[in-house]
Design a protein around this nucleic acid. Structure first.
Length: 383
RNA sequence: GCGUCGGUGGCAGAGCGGUCAAAUGCUCGAGACUGUAAAUCUCGCGCCCUAUGGGCUACGCAGGUUCGAAUCCUGCCCGGCGCA
């Protein structure tokens, strides 16, 4: 079980300072949650992850079920022991894969944008089309593994059963993450189903692990509010996930949080699913979010992108080969103390995995430090 | 020296009379990425323009054959291999 304590509420925004107590230790919130999909923050050892200031990780039900299978993880002593990560963990339910392996994959779009295919998703959905590799029914979701073609069925009951075997401190209810651009009509039905699945997720729980219910509703005010009320009313959830399409613009994201956050049980923690670009973090925290996960720092690092106090730096660029300075002069991470940009640029350009590892470390440190500053600001009453 | 095989865009390497500014891979350049199918994907990569079209220069060098040559012929230069 978890325990959440709000230490301070901002008077200037919905931001709050808190402590999330879990069986594996405490998390100072707001906190960023790096993504360890396959029980690994790609390129880093667990002691390195901790050294970046990371307090909490999120792994994935779908991926760990396919590989190596939850039984293996359980036999290894649960996800913490399995990956030698002594700190708190979450597992996502697989609901996101309904989107990412479904419409997302079909149309090549991300959750936040449909700009490349305007209208296509609406049309597909209105015609009742199913994405080509995912079939949704009331009972659950049939997936086809993009790697092996293997079929997989996930529903609230199986997702919770898998998550209980994985043994993270916090689980998420199985939801449908609908595609961006979904029509109101589609969303309304999807939302109702996600709520039925939320109840089934609650009923399926047999462990003492915490379980968060996920609020959907896309960018429709009535649906977001209905979602927030419905999940709050279910009483039994230990916290909330805010998921799905969180708006194409910062302004919309802000609006969505404003609709949802006030309607949630204020004593429980709120987690924003899949959003956390460095420039989003302030609005996320001001919007009242306690924890949020995002693949950006780790994902971009392996693409050669470093986040710095002066913006993004692309280490694939030839010019950096002559730069003897650190990634970020104002960063206190180990990499910035010891390594030249020139070397990291060389590693990235030469496709050496060490380059991705160094940037992953720096990016995570940078994001964590940024969020730590936000906590300070809340404590001082200036955020 | 003789014989033989070969010299193609930044590299490797297809093409072997027209549909070739030249396959493919790599490199290089630009872009994308927010609950990770992701050390990935997309686009560009001779020069110029009044640019979903047109012009120019190109396949070692110089000639030639042909309506037409990266593709055939001759000579030269360069490289690999074999024999002296």
């Amino acid at each position: 079980m978890i325990e959440f304590k709000v230490l301070k509420r901002s008077k200037k925004s919905a931001a709050r300072l808190g402590v999330l107590k879990t069986p594996h230790g405490e998390v100072m919130t707001p906190a960023i949650v790096p993504v360890a999909t396959l029980a690994a923050v790609k390129a880093l050892r667990s002691d390195e992850i901790a050294a970046t200031g990371t307090q909490l990780l999120i792994s994935n039900t779908y991926h760990l079920h396919l590989q190596p299978g939850e039984k293996i993880v359980k036999a290894a002593g649960g996800i913490n022991k399995f990956m030698n990560w002594p700190k708190p963990t979450m597992t996502d339910s697989g609901g996101f894969q309904v989107f990412s392996l479904g419409f997302g994959r079909d149309l090549g779009v991300g959750k936040h944008s449909i700009k490349y295919y305007p209208g296509k998703i609406e049309q597909a959905i209105d015609k009742g089309h199913q994405p080509s590799n995912v079939r949704l029914t009331e009972e659950g979701v049939h997936f086809r593994s993009p790697l092996t073609g293997e079929e997989l069925f996930l529903n609230p009951e199986t997702s919770i059963a898998i998550q209980e075997k994985l043994g993270a401190d916090i689980m998420f209810s199985f939801d449908e993450c609908p595609p961006p651009g979904a029509t109101h009509n589609y969303m309304k039905q999807s939302l109702a189903r996600t709520h039925r699945w939320a109840k089934r997720s609650l009923a399926a729980r047999t462990s003492r692990q915490a379980l968060y219910g996920i609020v959907q509703g896309a960018d429709f005010e009535d649906l977001r509010k209905a979602g927030a009320r419905a999940i709050t009313r279910m009483d039994g959830f230990d916290g909330f996930g805010i998921g799905g399409d969180i708006g194409e613009s910062k302004e919309e994201s802000r609006k969505i949080l404003k609709w949802v956050v006030p309607l949630l049980d204020q004593k429980k923690p709120r987690h924003l699913l899949g959003m956390g670009h460095i420039e989003d973090i302030e609005l996320i925290i001001k919007g009242g979010v306690d924890t949020f996960d995002c693949t950006v720092p780790t994902h971009y690092a392996r693409r050669g992108i470093a986040f710095t106090s002066k913006g993004r730096v692309d280490f694939g660029k030839e010019a950096l080969l002559k730069d003897k300075g650190p990634i970020d002069a104002s960063c206190e991470c180990l990499i910035c103390q010891k390594y030249q940009r020139a070397y990291i640029a060389h590693l990235i350009r030469a496709n050496e995995i060490t380059g991705g590892a160094l940037l992953t470390f720096h990016n995570l440190f940078f994001f964590n430090a940024y969020v730590a500053k936000m906590r300070e600001k809340i404590a001082k009453g200036i955020l």
